[in-house]
Measured scan of single mutants.
Amino acid sequence: GMDVRRLKVNELREELQRRGLDTRGLKAELAERLQAALSGPSSG
């Protein structure tokens, strides 16, 4: 899988935006949010 901790802030935001998620917050928050999205149930 993707290691969200290795991504830069702008990369985290890009991935979040692609999934329609909130791109605001600290890098740690963005990484946590993206990780949750990646490990969560895949819809679609």
Rank of each mutant, 00 (worst) to 15 (best):
R24F: 06
L21Y: 04
K27E: 09
L7S: 01
G1C: 15
G40N: 13
T23G: 03
G40I: 11
E29A: 09
R13K: 08
R13P: 00
L12M: 05
R33W: 03
E29Y: 04
N10E: 14
M2G: 06
E15I: 07
G40Y: 10
K27I: 09
L7N: 00
A31Y: 09
L7R: 02
K27N: 04
G44S: 11
S39Q: 11
S39D: 12
S43A: 13
M2Y: 12
E11F: 05
L30H: 01
V4Y: 07
S43H: 12
S43Y: 12
S43N: 12
R19N: 03
A28H: 14
L30N: 01
R5A: 10
E32P: 02
N10G: 09
E15T: 03
S42I: 12
L30Q: 01
P41A: 14
T23W: 08
K8W: 04
A28Y: 10
L30T: 01
Q35I: 15
G1N: 12
R24P: 03
L38N: 03
E15Y: 07
R19T: 01
R6Y: 08
G40P: 09
L12R: 00
L16E: 00
M2D: 06
D3A: 09
V4K: 03
G40F: 10
G1T: 14
L21F: 04
E15H: 07
G20Y: 03
A31S: 06
D22Y: 04
R33F: 02
R6I: 07
S43P: 14
K27S: 05
R33Y: 03
D3S: 09
G44D: 11
N10V: 09
V4E: 01
S43L: 13
S43K: 11
L7Y: 06
D22S: 14
R19S: 02
R19Y: 04
A28K: 12
G25A: 02
R19V: 02
L7E: 01
D3G: 06
L26F: 09
Q17H: 13
D22E: 08
R13V: 08
N10S: 14
R24W: 07
Q17P: 00
R33E: 01
R6G: 07
L30I: 03
L26V: 13
R24Q: 11
E29D: 08
E14H: 13
K27F: 11
M2E: 05
G20V: 00
A36V: 08
L34K: 00
G20N: 06
K8D: 14
D3L: 11
E15L: 11
A37V: 08
P41F: 14
K27T: 06
R19W: 05
S43Q: 13
L16I: 01
P41S: 13
G25K: 03
G25F: 00
A36G: 06
G20M: 03
R18K: 14
R19G: 02
E29T: 08
L12N: 00
L34G: 00
G20T: 00
L7G: 01
R19P: 02
D3W: 15
A31L: 15
E14L: 14
K8T: 15
R13A: 03
E15R: 05
D22K: 08
R18F: 04
K8E: 09
L12D: 00
Q35D: 05
R5E: 07
V9S: 05
P41N: 13
L16T: 00
Q35L: 15
L21A: 04
R6L: 11
M2S: 06
E32T: 10
R18N: 06
S39H: 11
A37P: 01
G25D: 01
A31T: 07
V4G: 03
T23D: 09
L38G: 02
D22G: 05
D22Q: 07
L30Y: 01
A31D: 02
M2F: 15
R5V: 06
R24G: 09
L34T: 00
Q35G: 06
K27W: 15
A36Y: 08
Q17R: 15
K8M: 07
E29H: 06
E32F: 10
N10D: 10
R13H: 03
S42E: 11
D22A: 07
E11A: 07
G44F: 14
G1H: 14
N10W: 15
P41I: 13
A28T: 09
G44V: 12
L34F: 02
D3M: 10
L21P: 01
K27A: 08
E11M: 06
D22M: 05
R24S: 14
D3R: 11
E11I: 05
E29V: 10
R5G: 09
R5S: 13
L16P: 00
T23F: 07
T23A: 06
G25R: 03
G20K: 04
